[in-house]
Write a protein that binds this DNA or RNA. Structure first.
Lengths: 147, 147
DNA sequence: CTGTAATCGTTTAACGTTAAACTATCTTCG
DNA sequence: CGAAGATAGTTTAACGTTAAACGATTACAG
């Protein structure tokens, strides 16, 4: 199988799958973004709150690793969350380079309110697929993503 | 089937498929972005050049519709392409509100060089899947995206 | 013909994103 | 101890993105 000629039909099938994947993701992202925006959060802000909610307070550099974002980016997102009173920065007394990011009461309340709705929105979207189809989609995506 | 109870297992399967879809798309996008960056283009710039290359010169508002982007966004992307000499703006003499965006010779040369490489990169990625799997993935994405 | 709509593109403000330069702090090792 | 190097976070520059306000132009109603 390794040396088979891959013709134009093969290209077309790949490009067709690619464009459908991209459109699907964009549509999904736009829909979920609307939901979060109605709750006053951006996707990035939600990501930070959700990480803090499920994993507890974290140093900013750990947050970078978890969310796969750059340091400069997190400075801004945490700035905006702090501005809105959803998060608090606490300097580490042992290592004064480090900063611990914590949910405020307001932030905790916000994520407890927003997370279930967000989750429901995802589940609802995916329920156009059967359980088997969800599993198939996940498996194909996993192989494609780690290629 | 319509009134079946959807339990936590159902939620887990949906969320699992969702996270794999997102990771896959991000990984794919990052990879393709690197290729374009090496050629001196951003994804958005590539999108504009590719549209002009395959569909011909277009008014800026038509470009907005084709690429599903806001007007303000296209002003910036076209600005940057113009700055790099890849594109030219021509005021419409009939309707002086309108602006026709055209590929320059340099832009035409650039997209002729970059497009095949970009296409190959996509095809190569998707060739970890069989033709049938590509089709399955495309079909599932289509249903999910139009839900 | 004239003033009111509607349309096109730009600008601005806000947020996100990265890479790279920079500051402050800590660690290590001579 | 003290200098060199590593690490944490911020800042800056560049690009992308949207929504909303705006200026210029055209279309249309009266």
């Amino acid at each position: 199988m390794g040396t088979h000629f891959k013709g134009p039909e093969n290209e077309v099938r790949s490009l067709d799958a690619y464009i459908k994947l991209v459109r699907c993701t964009e549509s999904l992202a736009a829909s979920l973004e609307r939901g979060l925006k109605a709750a006053g959060l951006t996707v990035s802000q939600f990501g930070v709150l959700e990480a803090l909610y499920h994993l507890g307070s974290m140093h900013q550099n750990v947050l970078c690793e978890k969310l796969l974002k750059s340091g400069g980016n997190l400075t801004m997102v945490v700035d905006n969350l702090e501005k809105n009173g959803l998060v608090r920065r606490v300097r580490d007394s042992r290592d004064r380079r480090r900063i611990l990011v914590k949910l405020t009461d307001k932030g905790d309340q916000k994520i407890r309110e927003v997370f279930p709705a967000h989750k429901s929105a995802i589940v609802e979207k995916f329920n156009v697929l059967s359980d088997e189809e969800k599993q198939t989609l996940g498996a194909l995506c996993k192989r494609l993503g780690t290629a």
